[in-house]
Design a binder for these strands. Structure first.
Lengths: 147, 147
DNA sequence: CTGCCACTTCAAGTGGACTTGAGGTCAGGC
DNA sequence: GCCTGACCTCAAGTCCACTTGAAGTGGCAG
C-alpha cells in the first residue's frame, strides 16, 4: 500500500478531504497522480501533514509553512526561524501558565469578589498588560478524531 | 478622575476605541453615560477589560465571557467552569511544550533529514495525533503597545 | 458665534482557514 | 452496459473578532 486515495489519507490523518484539496491547492501537499479523476497520494503525505500540523501549532501560518517546504520539496526549514518560534512559544506558554494559575485561584479564592484579592489582581494586570498582543486561541469547530 | 472618556480608556487599556464600542455593543463592557454623544466610562471598565483579556487568553469566546458577566453584572463565574478551562489550558500547555521541544530539536538536529530522527518523529506523531483538535493560535494583526 | 475635530452610528469590509453547494465525471459492482 | 456514489471543480459562504468608511453631531477653544 504505497499509494493512498484521498479518503484513506483523510481517515488516517484525521484531516477532512476538503482540507486536503485545499492544502494541495495551496501547495502544502502534493498528490502523486490521479486514478481517473481521483487524487492519489504517496504515503509520504502523512508525514507532510504531520509537519503542517506541527507548524500550525507552533503558530506558523499556512503561508509560512508553505515557504518552509517550497523551494525544492525537501523540508528546507531555517533553523533560526525554528528557534525564534520556539522562543515565542515558550513566551506564550509562560503566559498561559500564569492564566491557568489565575483561573484556579479564581475558582478557589473565597474573597467576596475576586477583584479584592491581590493575587488575582496581579494576574489580571498581567493579562491586561502584555497578553492581548499575543496570538489568541480560536476555538475549533470541527472535532475529528485522530486516525 | 472617576470617569474616563473613550480615548482615555483606549489609551490606558491599549484597546482601540473601535473595539471598545464593539465590546459595549456586545455587552462586555458598559458606559456609565454620555457627555454629549461621547461615551463616559467608569474606572471599573479597566478591570472589566482585564477580565475580558484574561478570558480570551484562557480560550473563552467573547460570547462565553459575556455569559460569565451577564446575569446581573457582577462577575458570576462558575468555579467549575474555571477549573475545567484551567485543565484544558494545562493540556494545551503541555502540548505546546512538546512542540517547543520539537522545534528546538529540529533546529539542533544534524540528521540528514529530520524525518530520520526518531525523537523528531515522536514529536511529529504527537502533533499529528491529538494536537489539531485543539484551539489553534491565530496571528495578531494589530500590535498596539500596552498602556 | 463659529469652526474644528474627536467623537458618534451603521453598514460593510477584512483575514485566515476552511466548508459547503451545485453541477459534473468516471471506476467498479451488478 | 448501466448505475451508483465517491470523487471532482469552482464559486461562494462561514466564523469570529474586529476594522474601516461615510456621513453626522456637538463640546469647547478662539
Amino acid at each position: 500500500m504505497r499509494e493512498l486515495d484521498i479518503a484513506e489519507v483523510a481517515e488516517r490523518s484525521g484531516v477532512p478531504a476538503s482540507t486536503l484539496r485545499y492544502y494541495e491547492e495551496k501547495g502544502l501537499i502534493a498528490s502523486v497522480g490521479r486514478r481517473g479523476l481521483r487524487r492519489v497520494f504517496g504515503v509520504g503525505v502523512l508525514d507532510r501533514l504531520a509537519l503542517v500540523s506541527l507548524g500550525r501549532i507552533a503558530g506558523f501560518s499556512l503561508e509560512e509553512i508553505t515557504q518552509m517546504f517550497a523551494p525544492d520539496g525537501r523540508p528546507r526549514i531555517e533553523r533560526e526561524a525554528l528557534v525564534t518560534k520556539a522562543d515565542e512559544l515558550d513566551q506564550r506558554i509562560r503566559r498561559l501558565q500564569s492564566v491557568s494559575r489565575g483561573l484556579r485561584h479564581a475558582a478557589a479564592c473565597k474573597a467576596p469578589s475576586h477583584m479584592e484579592c491581590p493575587s488575582f489582581r496581579r494576574i489580571l494586570d498581567a493579562a491586561a498588560g502584555g497578553a492581548l498582543q499575543v496570538p489568541l486561541p480560536r476555538p475549533p469547530k470541527r472535532s475529528k478524531a485522530r486516525a
